[in-house]
Design a binder for these strands. Sequence first.
DNA 1: TATGAAATAATCCTACT
DNA 2: AGTAGGATTATTTCATA
Lengths: 161, 161
Amino acid sequence: MTKRTSELDSFDQKILDVLAVDGRISVTALASKIGLSKSPVQARLKRLEDNGVIRGYRALFDPIRLGRNHIAFVEVKLDDTRETALNAFNTAILRVGEVEQCHMIAGAFDYLLKVRTTDMAAYRAVLAEKISTLPHVSNTSTYVAMQTIKEDGMLATPVRP
Amino acid sequence: MTKRTSELDSFDQKILDVLAVDGRISVTALASKIGLSKSPVQARLKRLEDNGVIRGYRALFDPIRLGRNHIAFVEVKLDDTRETALNAFNTAILRVGEVEQCHMIAGAFDYLLKVRTTDMAAYRAVLAEKISTLPHVSNTSTYVAMQTIKEDGMLATPVRP
DNA sequence: TATGAAATAATCCTACT
DNA sequence: AGTAGGATTATTTCATA
């Protein structure tokens, strides 16, 4: 190949910059913003999408207006940290809609979750019924967010009854 | 008023569901997906945007392909938790591009940050030069993510040199 | 990469259910 | 509130230079 597929020149970077702010912008407007005509922009866009650099496009929702303003971070420890146990937990956590993020952590605990619900009561239900019962969970510590200083918004749709 | 502006019926919910997955879908396609004709869908879409329920649209990027695969969570304690100190910190943290999320936490520490960088070296630089020097920061604890189990993707553009 | 033509879609409208 | 259709403008898509 003549060049690595993931190399991005300054036009690609500009495209990403614009799409990070307005994912619904038209190719025409995008082209004029970055100073190129439509065709190459369309080709570049397609390449970035096919490449996997651009994963997709999402609407961003206001958690407050959707009544899902309760955020908690949960440290989770497992009673078994062998591969099979970790895999079982990883698979199970994907199915819990209220869990927005889940990272395996190096250090004192095993996982850090970010959980979004409507309120504290809903959070307690999610913790008791969905998180605590996941495979190999031995204990959890919850830290409730009092205020969100920085966060792009909600990417998932609200969980409906 | 005849009804609350933020009430969402099942069509609105369907619209949000679709846009959560494909933020770039055309109004025509959206209309046929939710089983309504164009006019009402366009009106609803406009209402949801004007309402603030839909905050905007973003492209989602693959952190790995962009070489920004290092995620750390940072607990931050301040030496002063009075309003003015908190406000100073809140304002300052918004300017640190590598900080994706910042929440004020009820409990043992004051803030929890999520920081994304290219690698550990970059993280150390951000911690030392950008986070530790923010107003009223007294100490920090870092937890490095070993693996991302659940996360929608990157919303910001990569920080370029 | 640019340009221009044809197909498609968005936007706005009116009339009707 | 929603449907259906038409008119206008904008955009995508594709061919060609």
